[in-house]
């Protein structure tokens, strides 16, 4: 009962003069919205990267010199690491656009002799623990006229990190 009394009492303080400042709220709101839209649009222009496959990159010359994001399977045998100058060079193999099983797709890509390959060069980068054979590399950078991809950002994924698979040694032991 007490609740109801209180609720009703408050309703009587109806909206006085429906706010003379209303236009200020409207103008303020519109200005804020415009500022936020501007921020997001300008930020999108600055930060947008086409996320493409290695095949796309190599078959479209207009991508040369443009900052793009690519993904590929790391060929472990090709990794060369200059620890003194923090320079890493390696090759990635093209991966299809969408994959069912990441581990299988990475394995297939690295072992497919006909898959396109791309030489990658990164400077000032400590070799990440995840940079190893059949890891998925997600790279941001530009393709130079020399055919080498000069990366500025390197993200790596190893499918075995999270996926539960059937114990390989057990299978071999059968």
């Amino acid at each position: 009962m007490a609740e109801i009394t209180w609720e009703k009492r408050q309703v009587t303080t109806e909206r006085r003069g429906v706010s003379a400042d209303r236009w200020k709220f409207v103008v303020g709101g519109v200005l804020m919205l415009a500022a936020v839209v501007y921020l997001i649009v300008a930020g999108t222009g600055a930060g947008a990267r086409y996320f493409i496959t290695i095949d796309d990159l190599l078959s479209n010359p207009e991508y040369i010199g443009q900052t793009v994001r690519i993904t590929g399977a790391v060929d472990g045998d090709t990794i060369v690491y200059d620890a003194q100058n923090l320079i890493i060079d390696f090759t990635v193999a093209n991966m299809p656009d969408s994959v069912e099983d990441l581990a299988v797709a990475l394995h297939d890509a690295v072992n497919d002799p006909s898959a396109s390959r791309l030489q990658v060069h990164i400077e000032n980068q400590v070799k990440p623990d995840l940079l190893q054979h059949e890891a998925q590399a997600i790279l941001t950078g530009t393709l130079g006229t020399d055919g080498t991809f000069h990366a500025t950002e390197l993200l790596l994924k190893c499918p075995s990190r999270y996926e539960e698979s059937v114990p390989a040694q057990v299978e071999e032991g059968v």
């Binding site: 930020g43 999108t44 600055a46 930060g47 990267r49 941001t140």
Partner: peptide, 9 residues
């Protein structure tokens, strides 16, 4: 197409 926004954004 697939556009991602990097940390610059």
């Amino acid at each position: 197409s697939n556009i991602t926004l990097g940390t610059e954004y």
